[in-house]
Design a protein around this nucleic acid. Sequence first.
DNA 1: GACTTGACTAGAC
DNA 2: AGTCTAGCCAAGT
Length: 103
Amino acid sequence: MTFREAVWRLVRRIPRGRVATYGQLAALLGRPRAVRAVGGALRRCPADLPWHRVVNAQGAISARPRMSSMLTQRIRLEGEGVAFRRGRVVLRAHAWRAWRRLP
DNA sequence: GACTTGACTAGAC
DNA sequence: AGTCTAGCCAAGT
């Protein structure tokens, strides 16, 4: 199991209407400093992954090569009821509280 | 094995 | 609040 695959597995568990940050995923995987690697894992991820539920530590959608992808992410999140405020997800309301669910 | 490359982050101004 | 920087790390070459 590569790190990348572990990231994908974890991303699949993020519930609808909630978001996780790159740093949070890295921490949950036991590699709190591998944040950039998490980004790398999402850069090439399966299409069926709920990749749109991952945002950066500020709640913003991280920059990427194609602007359309960023727009898609926002549309999908709003479609799940995730609220934005000044261009950012309201983390206080939608952060995935994984620590309450993991063993 | 030595670089390089990012969908990152926290800290310093 | 915006901008910069150094540190970090899995993967690909």
